[in-house]
Write a protein that binds this DNA or RNA. Structure first.
Lengths: 177, 177
DNA sequence: ATTTCTAAGTCAACAAGGCTGACATAAAAT
DNA sequence: ATTTTATGTCAGCCTTGTTGACTTAGAAAT
């Protein structure tokens, strides 16, 4: 099951004296395809650790995402969470209802707008969130450490530019750039 | 919480004999958390384009992954695909059966081992695969181009180190970077 | 040659987590 | 007073993952 990947030599061909082929080797279809697979495998392993912890408690990845954002976006409303997750109200409601029933999440009536429900974690919720994100931070920490600051900057740079316009504004949390 | 999540100037700093705290700013919990979110949003947008195309044809992400690997791993067997995807035989079978029925995938009896089924795409299958991966490569190409070769190297480096041992061997197919 | 193991396929049942559509209520906005 | 918005909920559907059980064909081992 080997091979058949490198039979895709750089296409650019010489085109005048402007751009040389070897300057764009990182943009060949083969390089891009490798990036696609890298993302697939890395993301799969990345979500694997918390998935195992969640399964023990009868939760899924959707619960993880919800409590992650509730933890890190103080003052977050239901509509805000829906925007962040990119899911429908009905879909979120199902997991939110569980989390509230289980005492991991609480709601408070919004001060400015009393229709809003401001979400926050309980102590129990914070504990679960911490144990979940710790596994992911640990994985990332190891990768960052091994790769070094320069690589990390590049990692973040590329990921950032991969995002849609809309998403870029959501990244980084509250008082970010 | 007031730092740039994008341009993330590395901290080379002159190091004495010991490691100073500011050399590890890229390893703070806050930086790591930002990385976690970056991955979430980038991956979500990254899979969004093909998802839309797939939906038009009544397929899902599982079909995409299957035809991707069938396309890029010549001689791939069913068991091999199961390993790559990390799903069960039953789960894959459902998807594979559809793809075969719809004439996107064909099977050939293995030469060495006639129990095996060697998977390959038909012309139609190759066309769909191309249109799906083109959207992803295009997104990645833009991000790579904007970020530059150095950043891309870092991107790949970090992703690679995020993977589990087992997955690293599967990446890139053949002779990878 | 017979037994055992393996690759593939299938059926059934279940769960998570997406989706749409329809509707209800309270509070804000007009 | 009316309309719009934020939230919540019911019902039903789909995809894609899971387990468990069982079959068939071919390879391997005894």
């Amino acid at each position: 099951m080997q091979q058949a990947n490198r039979m895709n030599p750089p296409r650019p061909k010489a085109q005048g004296a402007t751009i040389r082929a070897d300057q764009r080797l990182f943009l060949t279809d083969e390089q891009l395809r490798a990036g696609v697979e890298l993302l697939f495998f890395a993301y799969r392993d990345f979500t694997g650790d918390p998935d195992r912890i969640l399964a023990e408690r009868g939760y899924g990845r959707a619960h993880h995402r919800a409590i992650h954002f509730i933890r890190h976006r103080p003052g977050l409303t239901v509509a805000g969470l829906i925007d962040l997750l990119g899911v429908t109200k009905q879909s979120l409601n199902r997991v939110l209802r569980q989390l509230i029933a289980d005492g991991l999440v609480e709601q408070a009536v919004g001060e400015a707008d009393r229709r809003q429900r401001i979400l926050h974690l309980t102590q129990t919720g914070r504990e679960l969130e911490a144990s979940l994100s710790e596994t992911q931070r640990e994985r990332l920490r190891r990768a960052y450490l091994e790769a070094g600051p320069e690589a990390v900057a590049g990692f973040r740079e590329v990921l950032h530019r991969m995002m849609d316009e809309g998403a870029r504004r959501l990244v980084g949390g509250a008082g970010r750039t």
